[in-house]
Simulated assay, not measured.
Amino acid sequence: MDTLTIWLFRSADGADGAAETVKGLAKNQLISVHDAATVSWPEGASKPKLRQLRNLAGRGALSGAFWGLLFGLIFLVPLLGAALGAAAGAFGGLTSDYGIDDDLIKRVRGEVTEGTSALFLLSSGAVVDKVRDAFTGENAPELIFTNLSAEQEQALRESFSMELEQQTAEAPGTGPK
């Protein structure tokens, strides 16, 4: 089963760095990447930059139209209103396969703000502990969405939170920001 995950980074360049990390993981066969896209919103920019990562896309990649419409719904609907309404209805069937709904769109819109970035990753076959280990440090991502089952999502969140707790314990005098 393909897994769609959305990872939030508290820096505008975090998602681009993560994309390079994922590329290395895929090369070492620690994850199968079917498609990926990033959104980065540099400080002072009026809108985010969107980028489909074609060099990571494998068989079964989503179309550029999928990413364009998804990002349009997330970031442009407040500006365009009903102009995208009809397209959003047609898009609904495809996005529901991955668990994308209005609540997710609102959440991503609220969390990906100026000075942050996000990695949208369609993957399968991840070796979770190896992937987790690749995303360590102060720029560790926050999982904001997955279409995994509740039990699988909880295991993934626990795996990443244990790593974050260990880093915090190892660095005296530091804590969550």
Results as ranks from 00 to 15, higher is better:
residue 1 M to P: 12
residue 3 T to K: 05
residue 4 L to H: 05
residue 7 W to L: 05
residue 8 L to S: 13
residue 8 L to H: 12
residue 9 F to A: 01
residue 12 A to H: 05
residue 13 D to H: 10
residue 13 D to A: 11
residue 15 A to K: 00
residue 20 E to G: 14
residue 27 K to Q: 15
residue 31 I to F: 04
residue 31 I to T: 12
residue 32 S to Q: 11
residue 33 V to D: 05
residue 33 V to A: 01
residue 34 H to E: 14
residue 36 A to Q: 07
residue 37 A to V: 13
residue 39 V to P: 06
residue 40 S to T: 09
residue 41 W to M: 02
residue 42 P to F: 00
residue 42 P to A: 07
residue 43 E to A: 15
residue 46 S to K: 03
residue 47 K to Y: 11
residue 50 L to I: 11
residue 50 L to P: 01
residue 51 R to G: 14
residue 52 Q to I: 14
residue 52 Q to W: 11
residue 52 Q to G: 06
residue 53 L to D: 07
residue 55 N to L: 07
residue 59 R to L: 11
residue 61 A to W: 04
residue 62 L to I: 15
residue 63 S to P: 10
residue 63 S to T: 15
residue 63 S to F: 10
residue 64 G to T: 14
residue 69 L to K: 00
residue 71 F to K: 03
residue 72 G to T: 02
residue 72 G to H: 06
residue 73 L to F: 01
residue 73 L to C: 08
residue 74 I to S: 04
residue 75 F to E: 03
residue 76 L to N: 10
residue 79 L to H: 08
residue 83 A to I: 03
residue 83 A to M: 10
residue 84 L to E: 03
residue 86 A to D: 09
residue 86 A to W: 00
residue 88 A to T: 03
residue 89 G to L: 10
residue 96 S to F: 00
residue 97 D to K: 09
residue 101 D to N: 08
residue 102 D to F: 06
residue 102 D to A: 14
residue 103 D to H: 09
residue 104 L to N: 01
residue 107 R to K: 15
residue 107 R to W: 02
residue 107 R to M: 11
residue 111 E to C: 00
residue 111 E to Q: 13
residue 113 T to R: 10
residue 114 E to C: 03
residue 114 E to P: 02
residue 114 E to H: 00
residue 114 E to Q: 10
residue 115 G to Q: 09
residue 120 F to P: 10
residue 121 L to W: 02
residue 121 L to F: 00
residue 122 L to R: 04
residue 122 L to Q: 06
residue 123 S to A: 01
residue 123 S to Y: 02
residue 123 S to E: 07
residue 124 S to E: 12
residue 126 A to D: 05
residue 126 A to V: 12
residue 126 A to R: 04
residue 127 V to S: 13
residue 127 V to Y: 06
residue 129 D to F: 07
residue 131 V to G: 10
residue 131 V to N: 03
residue 133 D to S: 11
residue 133 D to F: 02
residue 134 A to T: 05
residue 134 A to D: 08
residue 135 F to M: 05
residue 136 T to E: 07
residue 137 G to A: 08
residue 138 E to S: 06
residue 140 A to N: 02
residue 143 L to Y: 05
residue 146 T to W: 01
residue 147 N to C: 02
residue 148 L to Q: 09
residue 150 A to P: 08
residue 153 E to V: 05
residue 155 A to K: 15
residue 155 A to R: 12
residue 155 A to L: 15
residue 156 L to K: 06
residue 158 E to F: 03
residue 159 S to A: 13
residue 159 S to L: 01
residue 160 F to V: 08
residue 160 F to W: 10
residue 161 S to D: 08
residue 163 E to F: 09
residue 163 E to H: 13
residue 163 E to R: 15
residue 164 L to G: 07
residue 166 Q to T: 14
residue 166 Q to F: 13
residue 169 A to W: 09
residue 170 E to D: 15
residue 172 P to C: 08
residue 173 G to A: 02
residue 174 T to I: 07
